[in-house]
């Protein structure tokens, strides 16, 4: 993942210049796409749409980074909110987007047995638990940063983390049996 290569988030209180913003977005692009995928239930085209909308929001100045949190935390929060808005709009659609068997295209593309099992396990968790676990294990965030991204307290994030981890371990153990 590109976190090591990513430039450190600035703590400047004033808003970034467009060039600097683009540089940051590019640096976090892989991680952002992975997070968008997670927020869109692994639907690749939805994730791409969400990410494009987020980039437009950020570059047009509709979503402003004020330097209160790390850039990645802030960007992930914007992605999560944009995906939530898109989900609400999708509920208003007249036709379903499922490909029949309920598995997303991304899941079908996953060839690794363990990765596929992990996706199945994650799907069975509550959304909050899934989000916290993805942020902590996939994106190497601390529980505190995960809480900040999701807009919940550290205490709540810890509870979601513990419960989710326990349940996911159980589900994966069942899968490997």
């Amino acid at each position: 993942m590109s976190y090591e290569r990513a430039p450190r988030a600035t703590n400047a209180s004033d808003t970034m210049e467009r060039a600097e913003l683009e540089q940051q977005l590019q640096a976090f692009h892989a991680a952002s796409f992975a997070w968008a995928l997670a927020c869109c239930d692994r639907d690749r085209s939805d994730a791409e749409d969400v990410l494009q909308t987020v980039y437009v929001k950020v570059l047009d100045g509709k979503a402003r980074y004020a330097g209160r949190a790390a850039f990645r935390t802030w960007l992930f929060a914007v992605i999560r909110k944009t995906a939530a808005t898109q989900r609400r709009f999708q509920r208003l659609r007249f036709w379903p987007r499922s490909n029949g068997n309920g598995a997303s295209v991304e899941e079908e593309l996953i060839h690794g047995e363990r990765a596929a099992a992990l996706l199945r396990g994650l799907k069975r968790l509550a959304r909050r638990q899934r989000e916290v676990l993805e942020l902590v294990f996939y994106h190497d965030m601390t529980i505190e940063q995960a809480g900040e991204t999701l807009g919940i307290s550290l205490g709540s994030a810890r509870v979601h983390y513990e419960r989710g981890k326990k349940r996911l371990s159980m589900l994966l153990a069942e899968e490997t049996r």
């Binding site: 991304e106 996953i110 690794g112 363990r114 990765a115 996706l119 294990f137 996939y138 371990s169 153990a173």
Partner: peptide
């Protein structure tokens, strides 16, 4: 069970 390994595998696939 090391969840980190499982997630690392998924991350590699998706990356």
């Amino acid at each position: 069970m090391n969840l980190q390994e499982w997630f690392a595998e998924l991350r590699e696939e998706e990356e």
